[in-house]
Write a protein that binds this DNA or RNA. Structure first.
Lengths: 136, 136
DNA sequence: TAGTGCTGGTCTCTTTTTGAGACTACCACT
DNA sequence: AGTGGTAGTCTCAAAAAGAGACCAGCACTA
């Protein structure tokens, strides 16, 4: 993965949008990135990209999320249009969460990041260990 | 950007790594994603991808970050190996932050997400407005 | 020569966010 | 009558983030 991946023209476009013409505050891209950079947001999108899940299924799938945060993160994702929430009138009503088209289209680039993480988590862990050793 | 982008084989690989074989807790990918999904992390990586910056320059570039969070986020990014910190012995010592090779390689997929955000922030904003209207 | 500003931070305090866990109501099954 | 599963909400404690004062050292200025 050499530096050729940095297409200059694309970079300039990105920066222009990102910096909103000079300043990083009040930047629309930042607004969007913010919405998916929470602690659980990307994780739940990844889970729902696989298949729709019900509330309790997600809770079991991600054991260390609190119900409170699960509720809230799903709410946020729904609000931003990534997730669709559907209530089924079963005997105890069940709720199914699934990705919308927007959510699926967002998952595509997110997946790139996940793949990068998969390939490089060793490097990150080594960097961390080296840094901590140097601090001591 | 249709569904053909979802290569099934790649997906399965990703899920395997992501879920650590069934559970989402203790997942290395999650560990890495966590490190770049903070509120300021991706923003600073984006800034440093453009060119190296000094501490005060970053503070001015991102006016709504507190010094405390700037210090800490840069520290975290340095610890994970994305950012290099170099002190120059000028009269008031100046410190320059730059991306490492690892940081640059991580920026490549991050850039995909930024481009997606650039293209879709209108859709997200509309979804938000529609959702808020429906709640009222 | 005292005052001002710039450097890159740290320290403390307050506010916000997150986490842990009890609690709810309804229904099915035993 | 008791137990468990449904999807949450509510409250309180802990952790993280934001605001802003403060620091030392040097340069320039008045």
């Amino acid at each position: 993965m050499d530096s050729k991946i940095f297409n200059l023209k694309a970079k300039l476009e990105v920066y222009k949008a990102m910096t909103n013409g000079g300043n990083f505050a009040d930047c629309p891209v930042r607004d969007v990135i913010q919405g998916i950079s929470g602690k659980w947001n990307s994780l739940l999108v990844m889970a729902l990209a696989e298949k729709p899940y019900r509330f309790g299924e997600l809770r079991r799938l991600v054991p260390d999320i609190s119900q409170r945060m699960l509720t809230q993160t799903l709410y946020d994702l729904q609000r931003d249009g990534y997730v669709h929430r559907e209530v089924f009138p079963t005997k105890p009503p069940s709720v199914e969460y699934s990705l919308t088209d927007l959510g699926r289209s967002m998952f595509a680039p997110l997946q790139m990041l996940v793949q990068w993480a998969e390939l490089n988590h060793d490097a990150v862990r080594e960097a961390r260990a080296a840094f901590d050793a140097a601090q001591a």
